[in-house]
């Protein structure tokens, strides 16, 4: 049996700094608030490193920190949505909806020029560093509330009911926001990577 390693054996400053940096980038992407993100990561790291728990390796430690961070992020969103309810509508959201609506004819079928085309070689894309830079930019470009809801669903892997409850919104608004996020990201990845420069819409 592989012996568990205590945190002190795993942890050197460079590793802690790397974990902190990765978690902070993630928390910032999700929360869109530098102070909240910094506090959440600080708390999660402290809790993980002082919890007296042994880890089977660095990856296990990172997963543990992320698990704590995940709870903190959802708590923060829940607290904030109590005082400032998440709205499904706003100017940035309108822009996304208009871009999406423009893909369709009046009868709600695709405009011929905008009809989705197959994306080539997605597996290769996911191995490219540049793809991830574009993906990151597309996520950063999502409006705050849209990003919070979408990322709770797809990155924190909450079920839809939990996402709607934390955001304090109805299930139908939840579906509207998730569809909007996906259509914005689809559009952004298409223009930025899969069909870059090839299509007008």
């Amino acid at each position: 049996m592989e012996a568990a390693i205590t945190p002190t054996a795993l942890i050197d400053n460079a590793f802690v700094e790397q974990v902190r940096r990765d978690m902070l980038a993630f928390a910032q992407l999700q929360l869109r608030d530098a102070t909240l993100a910094e506090d959440a990561v600080q708390d999660a790291l402290t809790a993980a490193l002082t919890g007296g728990k042994d880890f089977a390796g660095r990856s296990a430690l990172k997963t543990w920190v992320f698990g704590i961070l995940r709870h903190k992020i959802v708590d923060l969103i829940r607290q904030q949505s109590r005082t400032t309810p998440i709205s499904a509508f706003g100017n940035d959201e309108d822009d996304i909806d208009q871009t999406f609506d423009a893909l369709f004819k009046a009868n709600a079928h695709w405009q011929p020029a905008c009809r989705p085309a197959a994306w080539a070689d997605p597996e290769a894309a996911l191995r490219e560093k540049h793809f991830w830079a574009i993906f990151d930019a597309c996520l950063t470009h999502l409006p705050k509330n849209t990003a919070r809801v979408f990322m709770m669903r797809e990155f924190l892997e909450l079920d839809t009911g939990e996402v709607c409850a934390a955001a304090g919104i109805t299930t139908s608004n939840c579906h509207v926001i998730l569809h909007r996020a996906r259509s914005a990201l689809r559009d952004c990845l298409e223009k930025g990577w899969f069909l870059a420069g090839e299509r007008p819409c």
Binding site: D22, T63, F66, W119, L126, E154, F155, R182, L185, R186
Partner: peptide, 18 residues
């Protein structure tokens, strides 16, 4: 297909992060 790729990308992002 695009939605499935998007979901794979989200999973991949999580895996890279961890």
């Amino acid at each position: 297909q695009h939605l499935h790729i998007l979901r794979d990308a989200c999973r991949g992002y999580r895996e890279h992060l961890l």
